[in-house]
Design a protein around this nucleic acid. Structure first.
Lengths: 143, 143
DNA sequence: GTCTTTCTTTATAATCTTTATAAATAGTGT
DNA sequence: ACACTATTTATAAAGATTATAAAGAAAGAC
């Protein structure tokens, strides 16, 4: 369970643990679905009927700055947020928007080459593959 | 010069060549800077004082659908647009936002593995490296 | 346990990017 | 030059995200 560690990590950086922050983190840890800010807002409005959207956005920013959460921006209108566990990449279905995680041995070599060619000091990288998931492939073949 | 080819390619798909489209494409081909829609709008308002922002957005969408242009979405607020010449990747400076192109032998292997693991039919992929460009590194060391 | 300070939340408005709409305009083939 | 249809324009609308100020709550000191 990574929720405990995440909370400790927050405390370590002097960020206060509020019920809202606890709930948002808990939701992110338990969610396999890479939710948007609005997804989170809606999911928690039962528990926190008075919570403001701004709270969700503020805290997602805090989590991102501390490194607990990654912000994923695709072509569509809103960002998605991914609790950082282990390094992984994403496969994105262009039909239904589904996101599936997959692992791949780190692309350190790309970072090195990029650094050499561009003169950048490279910190990290991002990669996704785009295509059609199995469900959507089946649906398409059934006309 | 790729402008000619791009125009031919548009004609081939039945898209009309308007002065605005010509100018937007010309700007994209000549620009090394991965402009936003607003950059393009501002850059052309001298030549087309009455052009609407909607025209810029509409045409960028058309170009993207035809495959002439790629839309890049990073964390920041607005999309950037990249004229498709040869396959390349981007190095992005986290200090100043500069984007530098670099080449890398295709990551076909990643696509294959992803396809195998997730069951997706993979069409393409996207990758960027993030870091600090030389200019910003120098500035930082000079305190 | 209470106090105090400071951070956080809330509610609301504002901002910014992008898309929708309908009327006016301009390409393109004949 | 004509007619048909796509495109542009101007405007409004939608949607996501951020700013603001007042009210509320967390954490450490006492």
């Amino acid at each position: 369970m990574q929720l405990r560690e995440a909370l400790d990590s927050l405390k370590g950086t002097g960020v206060r643990i509020t019920p809202q922050r606890h709930a948002i983190l808990e939701y992110l840890v338990g969610s396999m679905s890479h939710p948007t800010a609005d997804d989170i807002y809606k999911a928690l409005e039962g528990k926190f009927p008075n919570m403001s959207v701004a709270t969700v956005y503020n805290n997602l920013r805090v989590f991102r700055e501390v490194g607990l959460v990654k912000e994923l921006t695709y072509g569509d209108s809103s960002s998605r947020f991914d609790f950082v566990t282990t390094d992984h990449y994403h496969a994105i279905c262009q039909e239904c928007g589904k996101i599936v995680d997959f692992h791949y041995p780190g692309l350190d070599e790309v970072e090195h080459l990029a650094s050499h060619v561009t003169g950048f000091k490279v910190n990290n990288h991002r990669m996704e593959v785009y295509g059609t998931c199995q469900d959507c492939s089946v649906k398409k073949e059934a006309h």
